[in-house]
């Protein structure tokens, strides 16, 4: 009896003790590897390819940070997390950052003690249903059985949506996207709800994507972005400005193809020069080498390249830029100035 209490307490403190460290940057450098929390598998956003190499839109953020900090985009240890395990993994220090389509909300930022480094995808929650059901609006789903990943904001939005519209539903909680997909395809639920981007990604893996339709209603705002623990602001700055560097690179036309050339000598645009380290000491200000941004951009390209390669219109996922276009093109993607 005493023993079990002891071990229980040991486990708890073991979890908590891991979180007490402050200098994540030093830990990552010493380890020579970035521990990055990702999804358990969502095509286009984060999934291992046929060779077991992780790739995807969120994975690219991990690689960019690893490139910025360690100079090596492959020095990443990917830790798959579910909706339920991700926050504990981050809070306990098991992972250094989380890049796993996680919605930026007030309570997560404040109460859960995390810092969001920015938004890399502006999303919203949608529904997918088989075309055969003949449903054209989410408001027709009265009495439907809906598959939902537990431990997500989508779970709360779903409850609010049905409550507001005074219609009933039956939630079927599932742990991972793969499980939800299996349940949905088996017909154990009429509809599956998650972020619209996730629905598009999931539908792309179906045998007959044409037999499923994503309903027009977007029932929530889901700004997705990478996040780190509260309290280590230096590390938070690194992740935040690596993401901003990718975004700014697209704005200024810096791509993976021309980044080495542009970084070789100072050019005409002073902001590009500062970004790529040919002018000023921006790298030193966040405790990195001066070519940190160059490395991050060289890892997988700028924001636009990453988008097009993983989830863009020429991929099976086929997402349009929409809200995620640069602000100069009428979107919301916007990086603060590098100076």
């Amino acid at each position: 009896m005493k023993k079990s209490v002891l071990f229980g307490a040991l486990t708890v403190t073991g979890l908590v003790a891991g979180a007490a460290q402050a200098a994540t940057l030093d830990d990552v450098k010493e380890r020579g590897e970035l521990n990055c929390g990702v999804v358990t598998g969502l095509a286009g956003f984060g999934a291992p390819d046929a060779n077991g190499v992780w790739e995807g839109f969120d994975v690219a953020v991990c690689r960019a940070v690893a490139a910025a900090v360690l100079g090596d985009p492959t020095a990443v240890n990917f830790v798959p997390t579910t909706g339920q395990t991700r926050f504990t993994a981050l809070a306990s220090g098991e992972i250094d950052m989380l890049a796993r389509n996680t919605t930026w909300t007030f309570s997560r930022d404040t109460d859960l003690k995390f810092d969001f480094a920015g938004v890399n995808y502006y999303d919203g929650q949608g529904f997918i249903v088989p075309t055969a059901l003949g449903v054209s609006s989410a408001k027709d789903l009265d009495g439907a059985t809906v598959c939902i990943q537990t431990g997500t904001t989508t779970e709360l939005n779903l409850a609010d949506f049905f409550r507001n519209n005074n219609i009933s539903y039956e939630p079927v909680p599932v742990e991972t996207n793969a499980e939800a997909q299996q349940q949905y395809l088996a017909g154990a639920c009429d509809a599956y709800t998650t972020d619209a981007s996730g629905l598009a990604a999931t539908r792309a893996t179906f045998e007959n994507p044409g037999e499923h339709v994503i309903l027009p209603e977007i029932i929530s705002k889901e700004p997705l972005g990478p996040l780190v623990r509260h309290g280590d602001n230096e590390w938070g700055d690194i992740v935040r400005w690596t993401l901003n560097a990718l975004i700014a690179a697209e704005e200024f036309g810096v791509t993976s193809a021309n980044v080495n050339e542009l970084a070789a000598a100072p050019g005409t645009n002073p902001e590009v020069n500062r970004l790529l380290g040919t002018e000023g000491e921006l790298g030193a200000m966040i405790g990195l080498e001066n070519e940190w941004a160059k490395n991050a951009i060289a890892a997988g390209g700028n924001y636009g390249e990453i988008f097009e390669k993983n989830i863009g219109e020429n991929t099976p996922i086929g997402l349009a830029r929409g809200l995620n276009a640069q602000w100069t093109n009428g979107g919301l993607i916007y990086a603060p100035p590098f100076r």
């Binding site: 007490a20 049905f162 939630p171 909680p173």
Partner: peptide, 26 residues
């Protein structure tokens, strides 16, 4: 545990049990 919880800025109370849950149970 207490030191690390305060380092994380987390308090220890059971007030959350009275808050609105916001999710549905089948």
């Amino acid at each position: 545990t207490i030191a690390n919880l305060s380092a994380l800025g987390k308090d220890f109370d059971f007030g959350f049990l009275g808050q609105r849950a916001g999710y549905d149970i089948n």
